[in-house]
Amino acid sequence: MGQLRGAAWTRVPAAAAVALGAGAPLVCAPAAAAAGWWSVAGVVLAGLVALLTAVSLADLAAQSCLTGVSAHVRTRLGVLPGRMAGVLDIGGRVVGAAAVAGAAGAYLLPSQPRVAAVALVVAVAALALGRVAFSAPSRWVITGVTIVTLAVFVTTGLAIEPVQQAASAAAGTPGSDDPTGIIAAAGFFSFGFLGVERAVGTRARVGVTAAVVVAVGYLLVCVAALRQLGGARLGLSPTPLRDALAAADGAAIDPMITVGIAVGALFAVRALLSGAGAGLTDLAEAGELPAAAAARRHLITAVAAAGVALMVDPATAVAIAATLLLGAAAFLNSAARTLARPQRSSWVPTGCCGLALSVVVGVNISTGSLLAALVVLVVGAGLCTVRVRRAAAGRTP
């Protein structure tokens, strides 16, 4: 039992590395555009949503051997909600992988960022199709590189005065200090908590710890970037960490930061596409998708992510991915609402609170991301429904 508990706690650094590697090079800019310095409060709100959802997932997992979001929702709420939760989760992870790859492409190959993004997705797909898995030592190395990279950035950003003082944005313009943008900023940062669920298992305290660690990381990165660039410049930056380093006269360590970002992005994209593939497998096992979808899950998710990376810029993609994933979190928290008090790890009704916050934050990111998420949900759930009805008709004598 002690070894199992220890194994659960060792997943926290890897989960934090996935989350920070996915979001740190990307989400600070759109969050700052929405709220300026008030985006720091958005980190706290996003962390609260992630914390409540992590506890809800841990409580659900403690009551069954299920692992997937759609499986939990299907068992607690029914077939259609489970189908919708699965579509939202898969769509969010695929679009999220495209956003992370696009952001990494801007750092690696500024002249052709989309080419670099597709190349990163192809590399991850090749590893998956070749059944090449990260060993435990390699995961620890990747985790260490990601954390050290961000630590160097934060230290530089906080310790060195910017060469050019950050200018304040005019009220009403992107990057201005606007408290009404806190919820939108929280939506962008909620994408940056991806990977927290990997540390959960059935232990709520592990999920809480992972959410807190990631929140502290984002607070430090956000403050360092805002200190160097200000809300206006940060909100317009496609490569916020690089531009913040340049403002701090730290261009000499840019190559090291770029390598760290590339390593973190590779780890994050692999985790996102693996999660999307697991979601496809879950829907296929439930009869919602053909069995071929599970067999070809690596190819399907990679092609979809590469297509999104070619068509959608990273800032737009991260908004859509956050909306989709918050929708899946809303279903998951709704499923947790069915747990009786003795089945919950806390007196706090995490399901109710998490459901409310997930919906409020998700619908306030942007109108465009909400419409895109609705399209993904309708098309995906519709295809699953057609598949189920055809299968039922084929079994009818």
Rank of each mutant, 00 (worst) to 15 (best):
233 R>F: 07
6 G>H: 11
6 G>L: 07
172 G>H: 07
144 G>T: 08
160 I>E: 08
211 A>H: 01
276 A>F: 15
31 A>Y: 01
38 W>Y: 05
74 R>Q: 09
267 F>P: 00
215 A>S: 14
67 T>F: 05
366 S>P: 07
30 P>I: 02
27 V>W: 00
361 V>R: 04
275 G>P: 02
46 A>P: 06
288 E>L: 09
99 A>Y: 05
104 A>W: 08
284 A>N: 08
283 L>W: 06
285 E>C: 14
152 V>W: 13
127 L>S: 07
117 A>R: 05
257 I>C: 06
78 G>W: 14
116 A>D: 11
35 A>N: 12
233 R>S: 15
120 L>Q: 12
134 F>C: 00
372 A>N: 04
371 L>W: 14
159 A>M: 11
152 V>Y: 11
94 V>Y: 10
203 R>V: 13
260 G>T: 03
68 G>I: 03
135 S>P: 10
234 L>T: 10
360 V>C: 04
282 D>T: 13
374 L>S: 15
98 A>D: 03
265 A>M: 01
108 L>C: 08
273 L>K: 02
122 V>D: 03
396 T>F: 01
180 T>L: 08
180 T>G: 11
128 A>T: 04
30 P>L: 12
304 A>M: 12
255 P>Q: 07
231 G>I: 08
277 G>V: 07
7 A>S: 04
348 V>M: 06
120 L>M: 09
106 A>M: 13
267 F>D: 06
29 A>N: 03
230 G>E: 13
228 Q>M: 12
260 G>D: 00
262 A>Y: 07
370 L>Y: 00
395 R>K: 11
141 V>T: 12
344 R>H: 02
81 P>K: 08
14 A>M: 11
225 A>I: 10
292 A>H: 11
90 I>T: 09
342 P>D: 10
280 L>P: 01
230 G>S: 08
123 A>V: 08
121 V>N: 12
195 G>W: 03
271 A>K: 02
322 A>W: 06
245 L>R: 05
232 A>E: 14
323 T>A: 13
364 N>Y: 04
387 R>M: 14
78 G>L: 05
32 A>L: 03
266 L>Q: 02
198 R>W: 08
301 T>V: 09
273 L>S: 03
58 A>W: 03
236 L>Q: 15
132 V>G: 06
134 F>W: 00
71 A>H: 09
316 T>L: 05
45 L>K: 03
39 S>F: 04
386 V>W: 13
285 E>N: 13
18 V>K: 03
377 L>I: 00
275 G>L: 07
362 G>R: 01
235 G>S: 12
112 Q>H: 14
330 A>V: 10
210 A>R: 00
193 F>M: 12
153 F>C: 01
208 V>Y: 00
220 L>G: 02
91 G>K: 12
77 L>F: 06
137 P>W: 14
57 L>C: 02
282 D>V: 09
259 V>M: 10
248 A>L: 06
121 V>F: 12
351 G>K: 05
328 A>D: 01
132 V>T: 13
198 R>C: 06
209 T>G: 07
323 T>E: 07
45 L>I: 15
50 A>F: 02
391 A>P: 02
161 E>M: 08
209 T>R: 01
178 D>R: 13
124 V>Y: 10
37 W>Y: 10
